[in-house]
């Protein structure tokens, strides 16, 4: 997904003269062909995120579409005021591409572990917040990004995530994708958690619990309409995210349900409200936090039994 996103910036830049890559200090050789093909729109600016964002805003004010690329925690926490004021207050088509969404960089510690990016950026007026499930969906998002008029955050996964998205489902920023039907439970998931939600649904199906899965690749603007419609008649609505339980997908789901009338029984599967002090691989940590398919299925079974 990460490589696909960067390759798409290059591809889009070849046909759209607005597209600019702005990197901080990425890996050696990042987009080296783009640097040759469009040298004036391939910019490496150093470890200075506040300046990166302000500069990208200035470019966007004059008609360019910069894709600013660095590690997700540096895009959110380091230069929040620049994102809020320079980008969002001016409602500019700057794209913020965050490496290492969720637990991908957990081995590097809490400074690099992006457990709050969805919440921080969702709080900013006008910002769209998107987490794709896989590389194929990333291609569709990047194509859609060209016509999205305002600020956009693109959360990147680790890469090599199994492809579960389907071209025939289409893609539009802000429109969630029903992935699976089921009569008992609605799972709403985002990013690479949708693959795990689908696998959990299979486990539960074998136990006689029918699960629908809605892939909310866009956390903001959130597709409350489909969430509310699919929640009708379900025994439980479950949100699944690789993010702190504060202010991310679960909050968006609850917000949509609360706005539509009495809230059905809900279960929020997310990371706890704390910095992550465990390391290891993304998969190992998802297991630790009960966010692998088996853990998700077990939590849902338990929640249904309680009721």
């Amino acid at each position: 997904m990460r490589k696909t996103c960067l390759d798409m910036i290059h591809r889009l830049a070849l046909t759209d003269s607005r597209v600019v890559y702005v990197g901080s200090d990425p890996s050696a050789g990042t987009l080296k062909q783009m640097a040759k093909d469009v040298p004036d729109r391939f910019i490496i600016e150093g470890i200075a995120e506040a300046n990166l964002i302000g500069m990208a805003a200035g470019m966007a004010m004059d008609g360019l579409m910069p894709f600013v690329h660095t590690i997700a925690t540096f895009l959110t926490r380091r230069c929040y005021e620049q994102v809020a004021i320079d980008v969002c207050l001016h409602d500019l088509p700057v794209r913020l591409v965050g490496n290492g969404g969720g637990l991908v960089y957990a081995p590097l510690g809490p400074t690099h572990t992006a457990i709050d990016d969805l919440a921080l950026f969702s709080a900013l007026p006008g910002m769209a917040v998107v987490a794709c499930s896989d590389a194929d969906e990333m291609v569709r998002l990047m194509q859609a990004s060209l016509s999205w008029p305002g600020p956009l955050y693109i959360r990147l996964g680790k890469g090599g995530d199994p492809v579960i998205s389907k071209e025939e489902n289409g893609f539009a920023i802000g429109r969630a994708i029903p992935m699976r039907k089921g009569s008992d439970v609605l799972l709403v998931s985002t990013g690479v958690m949708t693959g795990r939600a689908l696998a959990a649904a299979e486990i539960l199906e074998a136990d006689g619990i029918g699960c629908a899965v809605l892939h909310a690749h866009t956390v903001k603007p959130f597709d409350g309409e489909q969430t509310v419609a699919l929640a009708q008649g379900k025994r439980l609505v479950v949100s699944v995210e690789e993010h702190s339980r504060i202010g991310g997908l679960g909050a968006a789901v609850l917000d949509a349900l609360a706005a539509s009338g009495p809230v059905p029984p809900t279960l929020r599967l997310a990371l706890p409200d704390s910095f992550v002090h465990q390391y290891g691989s993304q998969d190992a940590l998802l297991e630790r936090f009960g966010l692998q398919p088996e853990g998700i299925a077990a939590s849902i079974t338990q929640a249904i039994r309680k009721r």
């Binding site: 302000g54 200035g58 004010m61």
Partner: peptide
């Protein structure tokens, strides 16, 4: 920073 972005945009365009 904003001015720098505008100045770069002027050069690119």
């Amino acid at each position: 920073s904003i001015g720098l972005g505008m100045a770069l945009a002027a050069r690119i365009q």
